[in-house]
């Protein structure tokens, strides 16, 4: 999979935040691409810039304090960073959709599921909404509710006719997440960006959601950028994984290759930190993610790297090909990569 066209490609993305304490240089030359029909994982520890990346793609980065310093985001041939607000909305609203992490705060508590979904369905249908209708004073007799029920059925919500009359607080976390997935699928998007959609859920519920996403990807021919901090979840879902560290891409490879044979010392550290059911030894990584206001020189991972060399402290490693469609940003490979 993923051999076809590229649907999303990010080059040299730099995003800074102006904070009280100075400029926080969060994203530093992020490179990433998602092929048509490909499920790509973006994995990294808390605070490494996964959500900032997603928000930048979705153009929901708060500016200020955020600033996009450099880079381009090509989506279906358009550079999203150069489009005007209007054009951007045109391109994105139909073709790109988003599943947020927190199912609690992402639904408006004053609307029922049916109302919330109905609005979105009508909006996608590009029907003009009159002021009376907008204020909820007049209900258009249309099929949006029937459509909502159908969508809820598609995400396997039992008793969907009941659920559309409920308010978000009356639903469990897993149910809310299913509603959000249903909403994300309304416009038949080409790319789905999911930011840790199962992090707040229990494993048995998480499993159901992952199965659902897997199924929808096949059915709807979706491309997915799936953000998670859990390598196990990424393994289950993704064709390819990007490992992110401190605002930089450390490495990318096919899921199997990455997990069985990690190249970047950070990836190895991450994998060997995970307790395994086989009872193999697991050890962590010393230190912690750096401060973005004054990030380490050279490779941002060097202060924690067990294989640090002199060059790592001075030069930032480029993302280079190491064969098998793999890219690694590490000086251990940058010399070998040339050959």
């Amino acid at each position: 999979m993923g051999l076809g066209n590229t649907i999303l490609s990010i080059e040299g993305l730099k995003v800074h935040f102006d904070t009280m304490d100075g400029t926080s240089r969060v994203l530093d030359d992020v490179e990433l691409s998602v092929g048509e029909g490909e499920v790509v994982g973006l994995v990294g520890e808390t605070g490494c810039g996964k959500s900032v990346t997603a928000k930048t793609i979705l153009r929901s980065l708060p500016v200020p304090p955020g600033r996009i310093i450099d880079g381009e985001i090509l989506f279906l041939g358009n550079n999203l960073l150069e489009l005007s607000r209007e054009e951007g909305h045109q391109v994105m609203s139909k073709k790109m959709s988003y599943i947020p992490q927190d199912p609690m705060t992402s639904l408006n508590p004053v609307f029922t599921v049916g109302e919330e979904m109905g609005d979105l369905i009508r909006w996608h249908g590009r029907r003009r909404v009159g002021p009376l209708e907008f204020m909820g004073l007049r209900r258009r007799h249309d099929n949006s509710l029937a459509k909502a029920v159908e969508l809820l059925d598609r995400v396997k919500i039992p008793a969907s006719r009941e659920i559309i009359k409920r308010y978000p607080v009356e639903l469990s976390g897993g149910m809310r997440q299913r509603v959000l997935i249903a909403m994300a699928l309304i416009g038949h998007p080409s790319l789905l960006i999911a930011d840790e959609p199962t992090t707040a859920l229990d494993v048995t519920i998480q499993k159901g959601i992952l199965e659902l996403i897997e199924e929808k990807v096949k059915e709807e021919e979706l491309s997915v950028l799936y953000i998670t901090h859990n390598l196990g979840v990424a393994r289950r879902l993704c064709d390819r994984i990007y490992v992110m560290y401190a605002g930089t891409i450390a490495e990318t490879a096919k899921t199997e290759d990455l997990l069985d044979n990690p190249r970047h010392p950070y990836t190895s550290g991450l994998i060997s930190s995970i307790p395994k059911l086989t009872g193999d030894e697991f050890k962590g990584i010393d230190g912690r993610i750096p401060d973005y206001i004054d990030p380490p020189s050279g490779c941002r991972f060097h202060p924690r790297c067990p294989e640090v060399m002199e060059i790592c402290k001075q030069e930032k490693p480029e993302l280079v090909k190491v064969g098998g469609g793999r890219l690694v940003a590490c000086h251990l490979f940058s010399t070998r990569g040339e050959s």
Partner: peptide, 23 residues
């Protein structure tokens, strides 16, 4: 990493003043 912490520690008061000065 320790240096990062030192900077933060030392900077607390200075930072407070910096924030205050912004207004």
């Amino acid at each position: 990493m320790e240096q990062v912490w030192k900077r933060k520690q030392k900077g607390n008061l200075a930072r407070a003043f910096h924030r205050f000065k912004k207004n």
